[in-house]
Amino acid sequence: MQTRRQLFEQALILPVAAGLRATRAQVAEFEIISEPNCLSQESADGFRTLIAPGSSNVILLCGVSAIDASLACRLRERALAGTWVIWESALIACEAREFATQARILREVFGVNLMQPVALSPDQLRTTGMFIHYRWPSAALTRSFSSVIPVACARAETIAWYGNTPVAMRRRFGSGGLVFLGSMLGPNLRAEEREAHAIVTRMVAATGPSSRDRTTSATG
């Protein structure tokens, strides 16, 4: 017999599995898109620890590295219609060709420009530090995850840095938008990192319909 939680999670994932046909009105909770590899699954497990009634209109892409163009376009349509897409990239762990494909899709569909992933060496961790500095939705430090993907974006769009390098951003599309995470957070959630929990919880709350006005003003 399925638990209440399993049934609940299944209900969240189904609209995505059905080709993102769910309309905005039907999607009351956040949805998870993950891939069948251990890193993505680990990340999804982390994000699932945050699933709670009341989260809304948010699609989480957990540790993804192989989103095709048609799915990206559908996500953009959802964003234009009011959904926030939180795109956690796992491109740190993929081949150069795969990275190039994903970077192209993000650029063409969302106008997001990625730079080459940077592996964080022990020397770099010692000099630049071990943590990602978030400034939105609140100031916080979270653990880095071996590598980061720098993003080229306006300062106002940057939500997190590693040293002086922007590694996460948010951009509004229609009445929704995209949050791109170039440093993974899902594994931190799974590892019970308090600051990651606070950041993602606030991120989901800040992108929900009830706080849409506040988000708009924060975007400037």
């Binding site: 961790l125 010692r126 000099t127 530090g129 071990m130 943590f131 916080a140 430090l141 308090r194 600051e195």
Partner: peptide, 13 residues
């Protein structure tokens, strides 16, 4: 000791 990490960790928590 990794003093940068220690200092950042104080800020973090």
């Amino acid at each position: 000791n990794n003093w940068r990490a220690i200092r950042d960790a104080f800020t973090k928590v």
